[in-house]
Simulated scan of single mutants.
Amino acid sequence: MTISTIPIASLLLVLIPVILVLFIQFSWSLNYKEGIYASLRMLGQLIIVGYLLGYIFSAESYWVILLILVGMIGLSAWIALRTVKEQRIKQYGYVLIALLAGGATTLALVTQVVLEFTPWYKPQYLIPLGGMIFSNCINSISLAADRFYEETNRGTSKIEARNLAYANAMIPATNALFAVGIVSLPGMMTGQILSGVDPLIAVRYQIMVMAMIYGSEGISSAVYLWLMSRLHKSP
């Protein structure tokens, strides 16, 4: 089975629910402009990355792939601190360490040990899997940072704030483990099934992805919070 190309006219129809959400935000006097900006940015980023990936996938130099991964980690660390903007510069190094400890090591395990593809820097695997890992780490660290500061600002001890922040950061990942296969069929599994892959093979890949995401989120959030509770001095 070959996945058919979606015509542009048909693709535009999927924006109808997005427009409805923006209208609701406007009607309720909420920040609809942020939604418009986010939607336009999403469209622009995906169109650009579509062209960029064509070049990346044809690249035969591992330096190009490593440079892209370094850029992904650097941007992920900056985005993860969006909820604590006043602390971005101070905490940037902590988040980098956390992403390397939880994200980069998990990516290496999956690509070099579990999948064992050749060459080791094969971009068709390394870039998409790295994107999955680091994007989810962004969410968990962002939730952890926001809750940690909320708790410490109200006088909670750093250790207790760390524990509460970690529990909060892991809620989405834990919910995803509960829901997968029952409530939802995640993106990778759905894509493989649509392309004609045996569902049982797709399940193996999805198990790998779920474990990869849960582990990378948990480790990176824990490392970040450990650094914050032990080393960071509150302003």
Rank of each mutant, 00 (worst) to 15 (best):
I68L: 04
I68V: 12
I68N: 00
V70T: 14
V70A: 08
G71Q: 13
G71T: 14
G71P: 10
G71R: 07
M72W: 06
M72Q: 04
I73W: 01
G74R: 00
G74L: 13
S76A: 14
S76C: 05
S76M: 00
A77I: 15
A77F: 03
W78Y: 00
W78N: 00
A80K: 14
L81T: 04
L81V: 08
L81Q: 04
R82P: 06
T83H: 11
T83Q: 11
V84A: 12
V84Y: 10
K85C: 03
E86P: 01
E86R: 03
Q87P: 00
R88M: 01
I89N: 00
I89E: 10
K90C: 03
Q91V: 08
Q91S: 05
Q91E: 07
Y92E: 04
Y92C: 06
Y92S: 04
Y92Q: 00
Y92P: 02
Y92R: 02
G93F: 09
G93N: 09
Y94C: 10
Y94A: 10
V95R: 03
V95I: 15
L96Y: 02
A98P: 01
A98T: 03
A101D: 10
A101Y: 07
G102H: 05
G102M: 07
G103I: 10
A104M: 15
A104L: 15
A104H: 05
T105Y: 13
T105I: 15
T106A: 12
L107H: 05
L109M: 13
L109E: 08
V110I: 15
V110C: 13
V113L: 15
V114P: 05
V114G: 06
L115Y: 07
E116N: 12
F117C: 05
T118W: 04
T118R: 09
P119S: 02
P119N: 06
P119G: 00
Y121I: 08
Y121Q: 05
Y121E: 07
K122G: 08
P123C: 11
P123K: 04
P123D: 09
Q124C: 01
Q124K: 07
Q124L: 12
Q124R: 13
Q124G: 02
Y125I: 11
L126M: 14
P128W: 05
P128K: 03
L129A: 05
L129T: 07
L129P: 08
G130Y: 06
G131D: 00
M132Q: 06
M132N: 06
F134K: 08
F134R: 09
F134A: 08
F134I: 04
S135L: 11
N136F: 08
N136S: 10
C137I: 05
I138R: 06
N139S: 09
S140Q: 01
S140D: 01
I141C: 04
L143E: 12
A145V: 06
A145G: 04
D146I: 05
D146F: 05
D146A: 08
R147I: 15
F148L: 11
F148Y: 11
Y149A: 09
Y149R: 12
Y149I: 09
E150I: 14
E150R: 10
E151R: 14
E151D: 13
T152G: 02
T152P: 01
N153A: 13
